[in-house]
Computed example of a mutant assay.
Amino acid sequence: MRAALALLCCLVALAAAAEKYSDRWDNIDLDGILRDDKKLDAYLSCVLDGGACSREGELLKRVMPEAIRTMCGRCTPRQKEGARRAMDYLKQHRPQQWSRLVRKFDPTGEYTRKYEALRAQGKM
């Protein structure tokens, strides 16, 4: 599989650099991943510890906790946009998996509330 999810944030599946995450995957076909149930399921399974991970999936899984904590502070603009689109898609089309992701990465709801506040202000 080529591309780091998406999911959440495919986007964030980047090798950590000093200031920003690498822009290596900024041009992935996120919409293609979100429309392809098999690819999306593979990323979700990886990130939720339910299956094997591709190299990109491992990167996503490793970077995701920091990206969530920092509201994607080290993400490139494209990665931030991709994360927003992936989250919106998952909330609308995959609510059960979205809930599992939130329970795993934001069990107190702290970051979800911050994200929603920023969205309401038009900052995300």
Rank of each mutant, 00 (worst) to 15 (best):
Q92E: 15
Q97R: 09
Q96I: 03
A3G: 14
D37Y: 05
D29L: 01
R85C: 04
R100W: 04
E116P: 10
L60Q: 01
R119I: 12
D49N: 15
H93D: 08
V47P: 00
A83Y: 03
R2I: 07
V63T: 05
L48S: 09
R55D: 01
R119G: 09
S22T: 12
Y111Q: 13
V102I: 15
A42F: 08
A4L: 02
S99N: 14
A4D: 06
R74M: 12
L60V: 08
T76Q: 06
R74N: 12
K91S: 12
E56I: 03
R84Q: 14
Q96C: 00
D26Y: 03
F105K: 03
A6G: 13
L8N: 04
G51R: 11
A13T: 03
T112S: 15
V47S: 02
L59W: 00
A120Y: 07
C72H: 06
R35T: 13
Y43F: 09
E19R: 15
D106A: 12
R94Q: 02
H93A: 11
K20Q: 13
R24V: 09
D26S: 10
K91V: 13
Y111F: 15
D37V: 08
N27P: 00
A42V: 07
Q96R: 08
V12K: 00
L14W: 00
L30G: 12
L101V: 11
A15M: 02
G57T: 10
M71I: 03
A18F: 14
T70N: 05
Y43T: 11
R69K: 14
A86T: 06
A117M: 12
K114Q: 15
D23N: 09
P95N: 02
I28V: 08
K123M: 04
K38G: 12
M71E: 08
R2K: 06
C72W: 10
P107G: 15
D26V: 01
K123R: 07
V102F: 07
C9K: 01
M87D: 11
R69C: 05
A3H: 06
P77F: 05
P107K: 14
S99Q: 14
